[in-house]
Design a protein around this nucleic acid. Structure first.
Lengths: 343, 343
DNA sequence: CGCTCGTCATACAACGATGTACGATCCGAG
DNA sequence: CTCGGATCGTACATCGTTGTATGACGAGCG
């Protein structure tokens, strides 16, 4: 074991020798130390170019005590929303001079907790953290003293920065969009029974608020449970609702994956969308533009979320105040109307 | 700047002091050095637990000259195929004790080349590399001496390991599947004009072989170009083919994203699938199971590809023979028939 | 009883970069 | 011509870990 640098093992020492200066001067050139004569700087840069030198990041990291890497903990990349989020986060981080290390938790509680103490923490300067399975009871676990920004859809009381979306308002807007299309028997898919925090609860709250605002009754028979928000669970939930025989003319799915499952279930039964049932989702993943019919959704401002989150995290890292007062940023959203809710 | 370990700055030194041994003994315990008395080992382990010590990876990496991280260079995570691939690679790597650092190239030639010399190379022990824009002329750029495994759909003559799929055979099987359903005017979508290597060329070859085998003529009017294999370009290509007025009763799309775009274009024009036109894709992304109609596709054995690729790379890294004789592994594939080709 | 050999642990010197302290220039002002 | 401050570079220690060399101890052998 133990091969040195990938670049052929060229060290600062070699560069220094070639440029005829000390090793520290090379370091100074690389680190924008101001007092270097142009001639010296040029000689060093030439030597660097000649030898194809690259700094050894392990050594620099050790010395500096930081790595320039941030972690991104999310459930699974195969969920389109998180893939797109990761994409945006990587771009945003790149723009701010950071590298991203992705860790998948599978939305399992144990693994979500493990992420907080894993060896990776030690290799990263901070963490963008998107837990799905944790609840308020796990709050204490989050009282760590490394820079962290909570990401996504849950509202925690945790003492950490949080970049989120306006779940209640957006869900209300989605439901109102259906109501505005003349729907009156609107089902909701994705509820988590007995959960009071988390995006499921918040989006249900928005749904209820919209009904109330329109003077429509809240009917528990129209609430479809779905623990994991996958296509398969969305299809299952829809099938259960239909099997129960409740009349339905609109569906608000708590995310697009669920909504696509719902579309699929409706299609299977020959129920026309949007003719008989209108459907709206949440997340506005790219797939929503290409499904049949195309899917109306809530666009949560993913780029903005990523950019903001990386920015907050970077600030914490640079200022070294992992424990500063927590900030919460709520991203903008918008309703995107497509075929699935054309009236 | 310069905060030490995230774990509160506990070092081996502290552990050694608490356990009443030397610092090296602690290291020996951690590194499975065989000659340690059980009593000593236990004392050290207790001290580690008491202090919550974690090794400083930067220091270890510097000393060992390796990082335990592998790079994964791919076009974009927002392309479902690559998101699913990344998911599988991360799982496979985790199982083999490695961490994955994803780098997005956007399928741009310049960025694909930049990946090979970026600072990240220096932070990783090896690279899983999935270039789309490079061609045979770039072969020389790939003659690097760090461990690398080429991934995915292209066949290079490069002197590097390659995990690929049987593009020609699989494309032929897809086309034969359509022929078996009685289709005779089969279009292909995703061709790259003038390219002779790369998956586009190989899949086109398979398509032609299938036609030939069935005694059907090859008609250039049935070949749809699409530079990037996205939903949007697939829809565009299909629209162009339809606008040209060529009769078509089947479509082989070179990947699922294209196929979904094709489905969308057909739907827009009220053309029934599979009644009037049958469609088959390639990649078998999860979305294929939930589109309307569900999409027939070629399942390329993604798990197998990921597992194999990580294994090959790890072997290279551990044996230190980045320049050993190149191996090529061809993964299994299978035809998955769904609604879009039900006859 | 002296010697070798297997066990167990230690001291020391690296890995490659950077911060600190300090010495060596150079310039203009007195 | 000397002095002082601004520039420019250097030597050294250090980040936390691990490989090498080495020493101490006890057991088994002749």
């Amino acid at each position: 074991m133990g091969r040195a640098g990938r670049t052929g093992g060229v060290t600062m020492h070699d560069v220094a020798a070639r440029a005829g200066v000390s090793i520290k001067t090379v370091s100074n050139v690389l680190n924008e130390y101001p007092y270097i004569r142009p001639a010296t700087r040029e000689r060093v840069e030439q030597a660097i170019a000649d030898l194809g030198y690259q700094v050894n990041l392990s050594a620099r990291n050790l010395r500096r005590g930081s790595t320039g890497i941030i972690g991104l903990a999310l459930p699974e990349l195969r969920l389109p929303y998180f893939a797109e989020l990761a994409d945006s986060v990587i771009r945003a981080a790149e723009g701010q001079g950071l590298t991203v290390l992705i860790e998948q938790t599978g939305a399992e509680r144990a693994r979500e907790l493990a992420v907080l103490t894993s060896a990776q923490r030690q290799l990263t300067d901070g963490l963008l953290y998107s837990p799905l399975a944790l609840d308020l009871g796990d709050l204490t676990s989050l009282e760590l003293d490394f820079p962290m920004v909570l990401l996504g859809e849950r509202i925690f009381g945790a003492r950490a920065d949080h970049v989120t979306m306006a779940n209640v308002d957006a869900a209300r807007a989605a439901t109102e969009h259906l109501i505005g299309r003349g729907r009156r028997r609107i089902a909701v898919v994705g509820a988590h029974h007995g959960e009071s925090s988390g995006s499921a609860a918040l989006r249900l709250e928005g749904y209820r608020a919209a009904l109330e605002g329109a003077g429509l009754p809240y009917d528990p028979a129209l609430v479809g449970e779905a623990g994991l928000w996958h296509r398969a669970t969305g299809a299952d939930a829809m099938n259960r609702l239909l099997d129960a025989g409740t009349p339905i003319d609109g569906v608000f799915a708590m995310n697009d994956a669920l909504a696509l499952g719902v579309l699929h279930a409706l299609h299977d039964r020959g129920i026309e969308v949007p003719g008989e049932v209108a459907v709206i989702g949440f997340d506005d993943i790219e797939e929503a533009q290409y499904s049949t019919p195309t899917l109306s959704s809530i666009a949560p401002g993913r780029e903005q979320i990523a950019e903001t989150a990386v920015g907050l995290l970077r600030e914490r890292i640079e200022r070294g105040d992992a424990a500063g007062p927590p900030r919460t940023i709520v991203a903008d959203y918008s309703v995107v109307a497509r075929e699935s809710t054309r009236s």
